[in-house]
């Protein structure tokens, strides 16, 4: 088993709330400095930063899991992870169509910039990405399953945008086996707090919107390291969502 250090919830400058310094190359270089084995850049309802993140990470030894943080109709944040860039970009298209026609107001929410592998601005997203999409959690699971991905409810210990707050509990029929604890939370506290619910595997990520918030390997308590057989993407996906795969 490999004790791997992962930060699977990082926002880039594509998210309106993500700092302008959260460029693909800066994120990759910070993750390398912090000695992480895995990162996932998970912007709100969008994956347009991922081609550049993959390009920036190429040849560095850093493993990248393609991901998106979806805001469902129920106003809860669900992390979705995929096996390749094509699948996550397909999800990106589905989500953009499912977003309401509310334009971003950069002066209030921040820019939604798309960068290339050299951190040059090549575009922007017009619709406000932090809105909720038109479908709910069951439909989301169906779509993500169809793309061979997995879903992980985000920051279930937070008082907002968490499945525990929006829905009161995790619907028992959903194939959810892992939930995320927020970066400043504690896995032990969450286990105690939710002990009456069905047992889950917990991962902890930073939800970083600023470079300095990206997780650091040496600050991680042992329970935060993922015990993986190898560093293949499929291995990590199965670890996160064993029930998503038939």
């Amino acid at each position: 088993m490999i004790a791997s250090a992962a930060d699977l919830h990082i926002h880039s400058c594509l998210s309106p709330c993500g700092d302008a310094d959260m460029t693909p190359n800066n994120i990759v270089n910070m993750a390398l400095l912090n000695e992480l084995d895995w990162i996932a850049v998970t912007d709100h309802n969008a994956a347009a930063s991922l081609p550049a993140v993959f390009s920036a990470a190429e040849g560095t030894g850093l493993n990248v899991l393609p991901g998106i943080e979806v805001n469902t109709k129920e106003e809860m944040h669900i992390l979705c992870y995929f096996r390749d860039l094509d699948s996550v970009m397909e999800m990106d298209r589905i989500l953009y169509d499912a977003l309401p026609d509310i334009p971003n107001r950069p002066d209030y929410f921040g820019e939604q910039l798309i960068l290339d592998g050299e951190d040059e601005v090549i575009g922007k997203r017009d619709k406000l990405l932090i809105s909720s999409v038109s479908f709910g959690i069951e439909k989301l699971v169906e779509i993500v399953s169809g793309l061979h991905g997995v879903v992980v409810p985000a920051h279930i210990d937070r008082p907002n945008y968490s499945i525990m707050v929006s829905l009161g509990f995790i619907p028992p029929d959903l194939p959810i086996t892992t939930a995320e604890v927020s970066g400043n939370g504690s896995i032990d506290d969450v286990k105690r707090r939710f002990r009456f619910f069905k047992p889950l595997k917990f991962i902890q990520s930073s939800d970083a919107h600023y470079l300095e918030d990206i997780a650091v390997r040496e600050d991680m308590p042992p329970e935060r390291l993922l015990q993986l057989e190898d560093l293949r993407r499929d291995t990590l996906l199965h670890y996160l969502g064993e029930k998503m795969f038939p």
Binding site: E74, E75, G136, I137, M164, V165, S166, L167, G168, P171
Partner: peptide, 25 residues
């Protein structure tokens, strides 16, 4: 109320509950 955890803890028996949340929960 629309946040189900809040509603569970605070609504009273016998109420008519107005919510935009439509999930089976």
């Amino acid at each position: 109320g629309d946040l189900l955890s809040w509603v569970m803890g605070n609504a009273d028996a016998g109420c008519a509950w107005v919510t935009i949340q439509t999930h089976v929960n």
